[in-house]
């Protein structure tokens, strides 16, 4: 009888241990596969390029062809909220030009044209770094994010755990139809991105190279855009002088003729 009890106890103990081990494995697997909040991640990642609700910054774009500096352009960007951006062109070749973005609508002001000109979505893609790359940096407002996977990115000596998000355009004002976006797992800092057109064509890639503490905010300082159609061409965007500034709504009025 005691042998029977002993056997039963052993079997019960075995099942108990097996049950606990199974629970631990299942819990661990569940923890490992629980997806992060993609929307929160995207909103947080946007703060590295949009430090304040209303601010002014300068962007210098240097275009490189076959590794050699080819062109340099300078812009002053004034941004308010997620849907009002005003870009002033400061290089001599483009001096007097302005781009205004209001929600899904964009205008360009050319000093030698008789009126503000509406920009079609296709025109947003013109240039090595497109108008949209400079004027539309609030991805959370323009795209719907979905968590895809977690992966390590970077050189072997300095890999970073990143979440990969797939962003799909949710409004017609978005510059690209789809973006694959790598953000650092620990702080949602953007690491790299791939940009796709409606046709599915992979048009550009980006690496978010340097960050700097600016007026108490950690902000993007250097971004490199690689042309995926002409592989020997890339553009470096350097951000500087970002300051919060109360910008009046009327700065973003499309009929305002005295730009600047």
């Amino acid at each position: 009888m005691s042998n029977v009890n002993c056997t039963l106890r052993t079997i019960l103990l075995f099942f108990l241990i097996a049950f606990l081990v199974t629970c631990a494995i299942v819990c661990r697997a569940a923890t490992a596969t629980s997806a992060p909040d993609a929307v929160a991640l995207l909103k947080h990642s946007d703060t590295y390029r949009n430090g304040w609700p209303s601010f002014v910054t300068r962007v210098k774009i240097t275009n490189f062809e076959s590794g050699r500096s080819d062109e340099e352009e300078l812009y002053e960007v004034s941004q308010k909220g997620t849907d009002k951006t005003y870009v002033e062109f400061l290089t001599p070749r483009e001096k007097g030009r302005h781009v205004l973005m209001l929600g899904d609508d964009m205008w360009i002001y050319l000093p030698d044209t008789s009126r503000p000109v509406r920009i079609t979505p296709l025109e947003r893609l013109s240039g090595d770094a497109s108008n949209g790359d400079v004027a539309r940096t609030n991805y959370a407002a323009d795209y719907t994010p979905v968590y895809v996977r977690t992966e390590k990115v970077g050189p072997e000596t300095n890999t970073e755990q990143c979440y990969v998000l797939e962003l799909t355009a949710k409004r017609k004002g978005a510059t690209y139809q789809r973006i694959l976006y790598w953000v650092r797992a620990e702080d949602a800092r953007p690491v790299k991105a791939e940009f796709y057109l409606t046709s599915g064509k992979h048009i550009k890639s980006a690496t978010f190279d340097e960050y700097v503490d600016s007026n108490g905010k950690m902000l993007l300082r250097k971004l490199t855009l690689y042309d995926e159609i002409r592989h020997n061409s890339h553009s470096v965007l350097e951000y500087s002088g970002a300051v919060p500034r109360a910008l009046p709504d009327k700065l973003f009025y499309q009929g305002r003729s005295d730009r600047f």
Partner: peptide
């Protein structure tokens, strides 16, 4: 001041305060 109320590129019907459009040189 240069004011541009007309939306036309080469012509304007409503640009009452605009500089005159020249359709052979619309960009002045």
């Amino acid at each position: 001041k240069l004011v541009r109320w007309g939306t036309g590129y080469a012509f304007t019907a409503a640009g009452v305060l605009d500089p005159p459009r020249n359709p052979t040189d619309p960009t002045d």
